[in-house]
Design a binder for these strands. Sequence first.
DNA 1: CTCAGTTTGTTCCCACGTTCACAAACTCTT
DNA 2: AAGAGTTTGTGAACGTGGGAACAAACTGAG
Lengths: 211, 211
Amino acid sequence: MARLPVYLRALNALLDADTRTCSSEELATAAGVNSAKLRKDLSHLGSYGTRGVGYDVEYLRYQISREIGLTQDWPVVIVGIGNLGHALANYSGFSSRGFRTVALLDADPSRQGELVAGLKIRAFDELTAIVREHGVAIGVIATPAAAAQAVCDKMVGAGIRSILNFAPSVLSVPEEVDVRMVDLSSELQILAYHEQRKSNQAIAGGDGVVA
Amino acid sequence: MARLPVYLRALNALLDADTRTCSSEELATAAGVNSAKLRKDLSHLGSYGTRGVGYDVEYLRYQISREIGLTQDWPVVIVGIGNLGHALANYSGFSSRGFRTVALLDADPSRQGELVAGLKIRAFDELTAIVREHGVAIGVIATPAAAAQAVCDKMVGAGIRSILNFAPSVLSVPEEVDVRMVDLSSELQILAYHEQRKSNQAIAGGDGVVA
DNA sequence: CTCAGTTTGTTCCCACGTTCACAAACTCTT
DNA sequence: AAGAGTTTGTGAACGTGGGAACAAACTGAG
């Protein structure tokens, strides 16, 4: 379920505030969802709450971590060390949550050898060997759109089965491979769409369509 | 609709390949969706296709751009110029799609004055004045989680009504304000979740739960 | 002009996810 | 020990979104 990471974040925040137990209502508010939804989500993992009391924050946190798979080590490779790849390599949110960046790859020879976030940028050709050596299952694509499909194909060929794609390009992959797409400019466009509708409503008091 | 930007990308790709007209089937494949869904989405905008022929790529592209609001200018401010803010400021996908970054803001005085992507980093205090001056409606938050809500509140106070939040923190805003959240580590966690289930299936041939 | 072929726009149906509402279960006071 | 007060887990209604299928509309050939 895509909301588990949100719950996990909320639980971590509660732990930081030394909260030992919490109700579904509190946790739901912190996570920004309905409390019934939260309870149903959690009940799919098992009965980790106590009626009349609530949830033990530490215990629930561990159970969700385990469910997501954060109790194990996830080696990750990042391909495409431009501005975005650079930022991702330095992003503390990855390493602090059980993800370990084992290699940074770039096709541009002039960048290879450069030190980013304590790792030397290596040649894209080394991908297969690195995946084999570290047992990498997750790959991050931060290349331009034109290169994304080729990088993806090589990742799949090397055995990677989960891909996080930041390139604005639809990837075609075998069925057993998961792709999650993060398109930064799409997000802005969606905001602009809603913003425009809000403006039109303010002006026309309607849907902005002139008959 | 959240899929319009995807369609727009696909149409741009078709235009680059000098395609004048396309069927819903082609466009749907390029966008990675079902053709019936695509037709239904497009029909919400109006009847821009011709039965027996298909859609005029250029015309449809313009109509979608107009619907999203890309025919107008969208000034944007980015707050928090760390690794990620830096990458966003340099990200060509924003400027090439009608979004104009008018200011970069950071609370850290030692960074202020620094030149990033042709813009000088300015003090966070200047936010309200900048929003007023440029008519900014969209704000991007790329600060640490701890600062996000305060930045958000100041944005809302200054009149910003659409916020793109990269900080891993749930923002509370008035109803009329839109927030889109992009949580990079959540994306990785969702991948890890699926990856773990795939591994368990491969080993146990079941759901991985031991009775 | 007519008819076969093609493709859009739309209707109908289904499945999923969300929410409400309530029973089961726990705590604490008296 | 019993009852009042909480809070979880879940069953049932509801709404939304997706997909198949079909009618309407266009093209082109004969």
